[in-house]
Measured scan of single mutants.
Amino acid sequence: MIVFVRFNSSHGFPVEVDSDTSIFQLKEVVAKRQGVPADQLRVIFAGKELRNDWTVQNCDLDQQSIVHIVQRPWRKGQEMNATGGDDPRNAAGGCEREPQSLTRVDLSSSVLPGDSVGLAVILHTDSRKDSPPAGSPAGRSIYNSFYVYCKGPCQRVQPGKLRVQCSTCRQATLTLTQGPSCWDDVLIPNRMSGECQSPHCPGTSAEFFFKCGAHPTSDKETSVALHLIATNSRNITCITCTDVRSPVLVFQCNSRHVICLDCFHLYCVTRLNDRQFVHDPQLGYSLPCVAGCPNSLIKELHHFRILGEEQYNRYQQYGAEECVLQMGGVLCPRPGCGAGLLPEPDQRKVTCEGGNGLGCGFAFCRECKEAYHEGECSAVFEASGTTTQAYRVDERAAEQARWEAASKETIKKTTKPCPRCHVPVEKNGGCMHMKCPQPQCRLEWCWNCGCEWNRVCMGDHWFDV
């Protein structure tokens, strides 16, 4: 396979590697080409510095992935760790964990309700045991953590790749202090920090972006993250068709209702045909949960890209028209025109101005929308079919299609509260000796007794199943 190397943020060049090629071997190839010592090179990928003893497969490097290699003399205490030698983080029983690669970060837990604080980093599902597709590297999971809308060759929703760059020099040479644990960490600028490894760059702020994971991409090709779309790892039924499908869209209502993408497309087109989208002054033209839940309008309007190009163009047109109407304007009634106009409040005669090729020149009556006339309008008909009709959803289907309910059931079956801080902690095999993952707590306690870890627990039921 081919990976592209950008040395000291210059133009990239291809390097041929195998899945079992080590990072140090990659350094040696680059060092020979650039005429520099291999031990002064640092390989940066997806916000993480890659260790010498890791392989291309370990690092989730795919065909035509772009890695950054910078030349920086080692500072005291760094060289041993980078070589894969006596790194205290690798000691058996050590409590410190390697910062998780962005290629394996899962933010789907952050669609849980606000009262489930902490689960994004504490609760991990076991539903990723799908067998890898044919042709994928051994052991590589097909679980997708992110979804994007690819405006490039795909023109559809695709699995996405999370990447990070330095907000100062805009190069992907920043190593994160810690990985993101929720969508806010990724979507809110300057929320996460790190250290830029580019020479002479003092940058410390992280800037995240997404790429389409279905095809090789260049540095400049980015895609918009659709953070309401998630892999259906909890096997929730769709609120409309009641099938279990994946991926799904999880509405931001209190129940976190789930809808499959085909039904979401149908829901949007139906509402669009009836012009029953909601115009929100802050958000724009949007839709609420299909069950009509309060405070559930979709905030990231790129989710409506699921409509496809033709329907999305209609959505944008109707949204612009609705904006004009909300501002007190009118639409030209001549067939084939429909231009938005903003006449004076007491102006009865409205002319669709033909300047700049935008208007048709038609003069019409503001009251009856017919060709302009003197005197009273002959008839004014009330528009028919403008009443909002509820999208029919079966109550039982709505009850079963809740992301929140599956989460709470998982928590109930696989977790116990920490005796000190009461945060839910998952036990997935292993011994009875637990350690609270909350940095402010870190209590060592017994899963069996529910009390602080002691010699009695150690001698009596340390390794009970």
Rank of each mutant, 00 (worst) to 15 (best):
N144M: 04
D20Q: 10
T237S: 14
V258L: 03
A379S: 11
I44A: 03
C260V: 01
W445C: 02
T240S: 15
W445D: 01
A406S: 14
V67M: 04
H200R: 10
G84W: 12
H302S: 14
A383E: 12
L249E: 00
S110K: 12
P424G: 10
P247C: 04
S10F: 08
C293H: 00
M327L: 09
T83Q: 14
R314T: 03
P37W: 04
Q311S: 05
V224Y: 14
R366I: 10
H303G: 01
C436P: 01
L342V: 10
T270M: 08
A339Q: 10
P88D: 13
I122P: 15
S167E: 05
L61N: 00
S218D: 14
Q197K: 12
C154F: 00
R191K: 11
R271E: 05
P88A: 09
F264E: 00
E96T: 10
L301M: 11
R334P: 03
K416I: 06
P180Q: 01
G328D: 06
V5I: 09
A291Q: 06
W74Q: 13
Q311M: 05
I298Q: 00
K161M: 08
C352Q: 02
Y372L: 05
H68S: 04
V465E: 15
R392G: 09
L287N: 00
V248N: 01
P153M: 09
G292V: 03
R366M: 07
S181G: 10
S296G: 03
C150R: 00
E444F: 05
N313G: 08
T242M: 14
L307P: 04
P73Q: 11
S116L: 04
K129V: 11
D346S: 11
S136Q: 12
F463N: 01
E49Q: 03
G375C: 04
V15N: 00
C457T: 00
A214V: 09
R234L: 07
E452Y: 15
I122E: 15
S218M: 08
D60H: 13
G35W: 02
D280T: 11
W74H: 12
A172W: 05
I259L: 07
S116I: 04
V269T: 05
A339P: 03
L107D: 15
D262K: 04
G308F: 03
S407A: 10
C431Q: 06
I23C: 02
E404T: 10
L228R: 06
G357R: 12
A363E: 14
R314W: 02
